[in-house]
């Protein structure tokens, strides 16, 4: 069986997380946390959520304020975002389903106890003043996906190739919780200039329409390249490649039809 392939920015970041039991919304994937396997290849260990994950991604005044306010109300020495271990993920589709009962967000708890529950008819029995289930075994990683996105990419000769726009993942990393393989980094999609997102139009020669929007976005990113993980030398402040710029695949080659099951490569297939 071929391992599943996903794009971090397109298929995971900012997706809705729902409960695997009853489908109720849990949170958004505000960020992803990676760690390195024995070969030095990063793979995803947990989903980060909450203002301490979203704030740094937003940046600017809004992001800093979001982080500052949250830290003000968190008693810990070094508060971190809430983590959902990747091993709990049971389905990745138009939403990401997680099993177990994740800890309730602090703001939800606060709003319920202080604002909503005191109002008549809120459906609330007198609330016990404790937050629902405690954290499910912390798994801390070493690298946030959002810091990988947007990094400058330099080739072996030190020439700037562009910046990371998306990260291609393949589900053949180490085992997580004995049930599934981790998504490991398989390659980087590098765009030549700061033109923002690819909106999914990088997929396939017959990518989604409308034709005009597709042509416009492809045109903006026409010199985009695909860097395989083997071509990456070091992941420092800049991504250093061991290959020369001319040896990199153009992005359009990524989905050149090679076999009949090509259709399944264009993203997650419905479970």
């Amino acid at each position: 069986m071929k391992a599943r392939e996903l794009h971090a920015n397109l298929h995971l970041l900012d997706r809705q997380v729902i409960s695997a039991d009853d489908g109720h919304p849990v949170c958004k994937i505000d960020d992803l946390e990676l760690t390195f396997d024995e070969k030095g290849c990063p793979y995803i260990v947990s989903i980060l959520t909450g203002p301490l994950a979203l704030g740094p991604r937003l940046g600017g005044l809004a992001g800093r304020l979001m982080v500052a306010v949250t830290e003000l109300f968190r008693p810990e020495e070094d508060p971190g975002p809430q983590r959902l271990p990747m091993r709990l993920v049971s389905d990745i589709n138009s939403a990401v389903a997680v099993g177990g009962t994740p800890q309730e967000a602090a703001l939800e708890h606060w709003a319920r106890v202080n604002l909503i529950a005191p109002l008549p008819g809120s459906g609330a029995a007198p609330v016990a003043h404790d937050r629902r289930p405690a954290r499910i075994g912390e798994v801390t990683g070493e690298l946030r996906m959002s810091t990988l996105l947007g990094r400058r990419v330099l080739d072996a000769g030190g020439r700037a190739v562009g910046q990371v726009a998306d990260v291609r993942l393949r589900q053949d990393g180490p085992m997580l919780g004995d049930v599934q393989h981790a998504f490991r980094v398989d390659g980087l999609i590098v765009v030549p200039r700061h033109t923002g997102r690819l909106f999914g139009y990088e997929r396939g020669p017959h990518g989604p329409g409308p034709a005009l929007v597709r042509a416009l976005i492809r045109g903006l990113h026409r010199d985009s390249r695909y860097v395989t993980w083997e071509q990456v030398d070091t992941l420092g402040e800049d991504v250093r490649l061991s290959a020369d710029m001319d040896a990199l695949l153009p992005l359009s080659d990524l989905y050149r039809p090679v076999s009949a099951d090509q259709g399944h490569e264009n993203g997650p297939t419905p479970a």
């Binding site: 809705q16 109720h24 919304p25 949170c27 958004k28 939800e108 109002l119 459906g123 609330a124």
Partner: peptide, 12 residues
């Protein structure tokens, strides 16, 4: 923000 929303669940 990915919060629980809607009128199908109780306000609390």
């Amino acid at each position: 923000f990915g919060w629980q929303w809607g009128k199908l669940v109780r306000p609390r």
